[in-house]
Design a binder for these strands. Sequence first.
DNA 1: GGGAAAGGCTTG
DNA 2: GTACGAGCCTTTCCCA
Length: 455
Amino acid sequence: MRPLEDLTGRGRGKKIGFDQLACEEARGFCAENADFALRLAERLRPKLADASLERLFDDVEVPLARMLVDLELAGAAVDTSVLGALGRDAESEITRLEREAHRAAGHEFNVNSPRQLETILFDELGLKPLKRTKTSRSTDAETLEALSEAHELPGVVLEIRQISKLKGTYIDALPALVNPKSGRVHTSWDQTVAATGRLSSTDPNLQNIPIRTALGRKIRAAFVAPPGSVLVSADYSQIELRVLAHLSQDPVLLDAFRTGQDIHQRTAMEIFELKTEAVEREHRTRAKAVNFGIIYGQGESGLAKVLGIARAEAASFIAAYFQRYQGVRRFMNETLEHARAGESVRSLLGRRRLVPAIRSGNRAERLAAERIAMNMPIQGSAADILKLAMLALREPVTPGARMILSVHDELVFEVPEGEVAEAKERIKTAMERVMELAVPLVVDAGSGRDWNAAH
DNA sequence: GGGAAAGGCTTG
DNA sequence: GTACGAGCCTTTCCCA
């Protein structure tokens, strides 16, 4: 099929809208798409049936596709004056920091160029490279962090990178994507790219709007509610670990969620053998990393790297975890055996992922496949749940409310000011009841004039 | 000048 | 050589 970009062009400034095409061109493109879709449907429908995927397709994905059209048309309101002010501040801050960087380096250079930075750090200043990329010595954030002990430059570059990343990707880019007629950004949702069943979002990607840093939160605050409305954000609490509790039926995990415990605190108690009051922040931080690692199919080296500890120490954490969470160990082993037998792994709604590399003779490839196999049922089932929640909330929860965004474990709505309390309650209840697991699903809902305030 | 690769960084 | 799933930015390199 002809890519749409062949007709519309691509890239900033040159791309035209579909509505700008000559009618004959648009007609040809649409006809070709419809023809291919029909012919594919005839061939693929029997395969769906063979794989027991017809219910997932007919009852979830197709209705969701119609709903995503509504989301795309609705769009999200962006206050470009907020971004304009942030852009001017960021501009002058970058200019100031660049002068700093040039002075620290001893001459001018392009701070955005990893190549040039590599030469300056490792050849001119004589700093020690920490790791390699495919073709060079790495200058990534982790490296610069470590090098900042030894020299002034790496820290300055880190600051510049942080600001210019946010400026380039969000502050400068978003206003250009605002539709002049609606005054809003209209992302494209894709149901067919993420292998686990998650949605993805492009042009702009609204699933990676910053939140971590102060500047990031200011950018997020540029996503606003229209006058008279507020944004309501509702997100699942620890959905992936709850899914794991359900899939594995692990008694400790089940107990933790049934009794409403802080899951990272509980894991800290289990693997470090501590009483509640003995758990310190550092214990919890490490336990949290272990919990994330479990979801990702962690290895010893991966955990050691994240926590900055010796491999042997990480190994003992993992051993302690599986000692305490034997149901999780059993579930992971069964999932691996299943995949090794040549079967696909599946989410709760039956979505499948094949992992043929699990029988690879290449160790790295095989281990990567094992991580994929262990993670897919967890991430995939969480994606199933969010999709069911979207469908459950297809009709407005209050007369003037409408859904505008979906971000993996979070749904965002525009709600008229007078309907907020009722909308929050209905959204929360609907999301929590969408599927009955062995542990409760818990949803936190917030509201505010902008996305940062609501989250 | 365009496209792809590389390096890097944002998010859940 | 190392954690799962994504998308987008700038620079660099190569080719027509």
